[in-house]
Simulated assay, not measured.
Amino acid sequence: MTVVAAGVALFGALFFALGAALQQVEAVRTSEHALLRLARRPRWLLGGLSIITGGGLHIVALSLGPLTVVQPMGVASLLFALPISAALMGRRPAGAEILAAATVSAGLAGLVLIVPPAWNAPTLNGSETATLLTVTGIAALLLWAGSRVAAPSLRAGLLAAGSGVLYGATATLTRVLVKGTWEIWLILLIPVPAIVALMLLQRAYSVGHFGVSFASLQVADPLTAVAFGALLLGEPLPVGPGGVAVAVGAAGLACVGTVALARTTPLSH
Rank of each mutant, 00 (worst) to 15 (best):
M1C: 05
G7I: 08
V8A: 07
A9M: 01
A9V: 02
L10K: 05
A13K: 10
A17T: 13
L18E: 02
G19D: 05
A20C: 08
Q23R: 15
Q24F: 14
V28W: 01
V28M: 07
R29Q: 15
S31D: 02
A39W: 12
R40P: 00
R41E: 12
R43K: 14
W44I: 08
L45P: 05
L46I: 09
S50M: 14
I51M: 12
T53M: 13
H58I: 08
I59D: 12
A61I: 07
L62P: 12
L67F: 10
T68V: 10
V70S: 01
V70L: 02
G74N: 14
V75F: 06
V75L: 04
A76G: 02
S77H: 11
L79C: 03
F80Y: 12
F80Q: 11
P83M: 06
L88W: 15
A94M: 15
A94W: 09
G95D: 04
G95F: 04
G95H: 00
E97M: 10
L99T: 10
L99F: 11
A102K: 07
T103F: 01
T103A: 06
T103C: 09
A106T: 14
A106R: 06
A109C: 06
G110S: 04
P116T: 01
A118P: 02
A121H: 13
P122N: 06
P122A: 09
T123F: 01
T123A: 12
N125F: 04
N125M: 04
G126L: 13
T129L: 13
T131W: 15
T131R: 11
L132I: 12
L132R: 04
T134L: 14
G137V: 03
G137F: 01
A140T: 02
L141K: 06
L142I: 15
L143W: 07
A145M: 14
A145S: 09
S147A: 15
S147N: 03
A150F: 06
P152F: 08
L154T: 14
A160N: 10
A160Y: 05
V165D: 00
V165K: 00
L166V: 00
A171F: 08
L173V: 03
V176P: 08
V176T: 12
L177A: 13
K179T: 14
K179I: 09
T181F: 07
T181C: 01
W182S: 11
E183N: 11
W185D: 15
L186C: 02
L188G: 08
L189Y: 07
I190W: 03
V192T: 13
V192N: 10
P193E: 07
V196A: 13
V196Y: 00
A197R: 07
L198K: 02
A204F: 01
S206I: 10
V207Y: 00
F210N: 06
F210P: 05
F210G: 01
G211A: 03
F214V: 14
A215H: 03
S216T: 09
L217P: 12
V219N: 01
D221H: 08
D221R: 08
T224Y: 05
T224W: 01
A225F: 09
A230M: 08
A230Q: 09
L233A: 11
G234D: 13
P236Y: 10
V239W: 11
V239K: 13
V239A: 15
G243A: 00
A247L: 09
V248H: 05
L253P: 04
L253A: 05
C255P: 00
A262K: 04
R263G: 09
T265E: 03
T265F: 00
L267Q: 14
H269D: 12
